[in-house]
């Protein structure tokens, strides 16, 4: 392993994290597990922003964008959990495939 750690290694970790999050979003039934997959995807995007800030020849704007991504993730988690709690009160389930009242 003579390869020195550079931009590529960070981006590969981010790509793996993104794919795992995508897999979780697609396969999970429980809405909270879907939220965990989304958080993984957002983290992967953030690693990309920060890695390009360090290795790209630019200023620190990427980290500022990453701060905004974290803010959005927090707001999104709060709203999604409120919706999930409400669905659980109304329908007694949080499985995304059983909440199909609008189907028929």
């Amino acid at each position: 392993m003579a390869v020195h750690i550079g931009l590529t290694q960070f981006l590969v970790v981010s790509a793996i994290l993104f794919s795992l999050g995508l897999y979780g979003v697609i396969t999970r039934k429980n809405a909270i597990m879907v939220l965990m997959g989304i958080e993984l995807i957002l983290n992967a995007a953030n690693i990309n922003f920060v890695a390009f800030t360090r290795y790209g020849a630019m200023n620190i704007s990427g980290q500022v964008v990453a701060v905004f991504v974290i803010i959005l993730a927090a707001a999104e988690a709060a709203v999604l959990l409120a919706i999930v709690l409400n669905i659980f009160q109304q329908l007694n389930t949080v499985n995304v495939d059983e909440v199909d009242n609008l189907k028929n």
């Binding site: 981006l11 993104f18 794919s19 995508l22 897999y23 697609i26 396969t27 999970r28 039934k29």
Partner: peptide
């Protein structure tokens, strides 16, 4: 809650995206 939906398309999509990304990177 051990429910799992549509594993095969998920593996396909996530695998294809991961392979493409890692290959390009």
């Amino acid at each position: 809650k051990r429910g799992i939906l549509s594993v095969v398309p998920a593996v396909l999509i996530a695998g294809i995206i991961a392979g493409t990304l890692v290959g390009v990177l």
